[in-house]
């Protein structure tokens, strides 16, 4: 057996891994984030100096660590799917819990950033850049929390013996959602923190 992406190399399927309903949901979420990103970029085009100035107030170290945390969590989730396809239930649970812990790290760091901005009197009305920064990142933050809840449910069900090599749609469904959250952040990180 193999990793989710590589099993697919050998046998082509018509549908992506997991429940098809989650993919409809993922599409909807991606459309919303795409609109957000476009709105940010086109608004920035009219306020380049403002965006460049206030972008420098953001903590790129924290954002980089958060990016590494989400990438690592995605890797762990991939390993969880690979494990359940091998019928290695306990291993699947361990990888899933490890992914959740990476999510906890992300939330802790991001919460620290929000606390810092709040202490400095920054809010949605401070200026256009902060309005985008806070709304975009908080919208994503809520998705990370939702993803952690989904992965928690997957871990509990896996631990209860609900998944096996034959039936593990739930694990793949949770994994697909989590990877979507990761992909969105991979674009958000450079767009909001780095690109000037």
């Amino acid at each position: 057996m193999d990793a989710p992406g590589l099993k697919a190399l050998a046998v082509k399927n018509n549908y992506p891994p997991g429940d098809l309903a989650i993919w409809i949901f993922i599409l909807a979420e991606l459309l919303v984030f795409a609109a957000f990103f476009a709105a940010y970029a086109f608004t920035r085009a009219h306020h380049v100096e403002l965006f460049n100035t206030y972008q420098r107030t953001l903590d790129t170290n924290a954002a980089m660590i958060n990016t590494l945390a989400l990438i690592t969590s995605s890797y762990f989730v991939m390993r969880a799917v690979a494990a359940i396809r091998e019928d290695r239930v306990k291993l699947c649970v361990r990888w899933t819990v490890a992914a959740i812990l990476m999510g906890v790290l992300f939330i802790a760091i991001k919460s620290g950033e929000y606390a810092h901005h709040y202490a400095n009197g920054v809010n949605l009305r401070t200026n256009t850049f902060y309005m985008f920064y806070l709304s975009l990142t908080f919208f994503h933050y809520m998705h990370v929390l939702m993803g952690m809840i989904i992965l928690g449910a997957v871990a509990i069900k896996a631990n209860n013996g609900s998944y096996s090599a034959r039936e593990h749609t739930g694990v793949e469904t949770g994994a697909s959602y989590w990877h979507m959250v990761d992909i969105v952040w991979l674009v958000l990180f450079p767009l909001v923190y780095i690109m000037r």
């Binding site: 992406g5 697919a8 992506p16 599409l27 991606l30 991939m78 994994a175 450079p190 767009l191 690109m195």
Partner: peptide
Amino acid sequence: VLAFALFKGLLIGDYYMGLKGVRGLWRWV
């Protein structure tokens, strides 16, 4: 920097989401 981000997203989609082995429209999502 944007190109790096898009390439990273492509890798996650292909290898971790498993879309590399999917036919048709879903392959391109």
